[in-house]
Amino acid sequence: MRVAILSDIHANREAFEACLADAARRGAQRLVLLGDIVGYGADPVWAVQRTRELAEAGAVVIKGNHDEAAVEDRGGMTSDAGAAAAWTRAVLDDAAKRFLDTLPMEVEEEDRLYVHADAQHPTRWRYTRDAEDARAALEAVRARVVLCGHVHVPALYGLTATAKIAAHRPMAEVAVPLTRPRRWLAVVGAVGQPRDGNPAAAYALLDTEANELTTLRVPYDIEGAARKIRAAGLPEGLAARLARGR
């Protein structure tokens, strides 16, 4: 089965639609959204509505820190993120907030764990930035493969039986075998706000039979998404960074 894994959509309708279309074209039969449906972008109402439809059709949806902040102000965000969260809280209705509030922190499926941030302490929203973070996460859970987001930069880490860990920067369109008995942690890139210097939307496709993970990059209407952010009066930096991919 092919599972499309999308993370950090951030209310970017253009990028979200482009990735969903790409995943459908590539024969994805199952959809997993790793959180941060909203925040930063100008289309939170649409993004939540679309996510609810997808969830009703069977998609797995995980809660991200921006989804939490869209329900209730918990503080601790950068000024741009805080401003976007406040705006998002103002435009979402109660039903949308209820949906975001009830999302699970993590879901286990077969030998996989889906989580938004650090798998060791999902509610602390920590970043899995390097091999040591990945090792700590893998040692804290029993799933063979952990799939997370939150970092906005794709990465792949493999843990061996002898407790060594290999870090890898996944290349677009290259299917990487998630060999057994090794355990793997994949940080899926961001759909709605990539930060690895490549502005194209990122998601991943997992082939559970071939046991391969492919990182994909999808072009989308960046100018359109940025224009809406400016029109909504959100901070200029949130619009400008989409074209830079930083």
Partner: peptide, 10 residues
């Protein structure tokens, strides 16, 4: 070049 190098870490 496009796949993880398991030997290097090991």
């Amino acid at each position: 070049a496009l796949l993880p190098d398991l030997m290097e870490e090991e």
